[in-house]
Amino acid sequence: MTSMNEWPRGQWLRLWSALPSTLVRATARQLAERYEVEDLELPQSGLGLMPLSDSALGETYFIGEVPLARSQVRLASPAQGPVEGAATLVDDRVGLVRDLAILDAAVGARLPGHESAVELLAQGATVVAESDHQRRALLAATRVDFALLGTAEEDDDE
């Protein structure tokens, strides 16, 4: 049995969005059949201007814009009362972001039925780990070993 405690809430979106959206949408649909979903704000897509901290002089500037979609929902739970969830994603699919907000609400409040969404976290973690592994491979395969250059008495000062 997978435990939601393995992943902080701050990583849930990353893990869920690493999966095919059909998986997320199917699980959200199951939860939506179980709980009444109220949109606290209509799902929207748009842009966010991204400020970056310049690491040379410590000034902030806008590097450009990113697509954003956001949604905030309330699930009516007879046992626990209303619970809220939300998602803001670097993406422009409003349907997906609403489904992610539903998962966020269900898992955040540990509503009955949230286990399937936690299972998706585990699956997403596997996908993210594989992606991380591939990126590390790019680094590991190209790490420069200057000590070996020194051993071979090559001049690497230039």
Partner: peptide, 22 residues
Amino acid sequence: RSTKPRLLDLPVQETRQMRLIR
């Protein structure tokens, strides 16, 4: 991009957290 609304103001992002490939 000119057809899309500005949805929200993002907080300042730090490049020290970059997941590097080079």
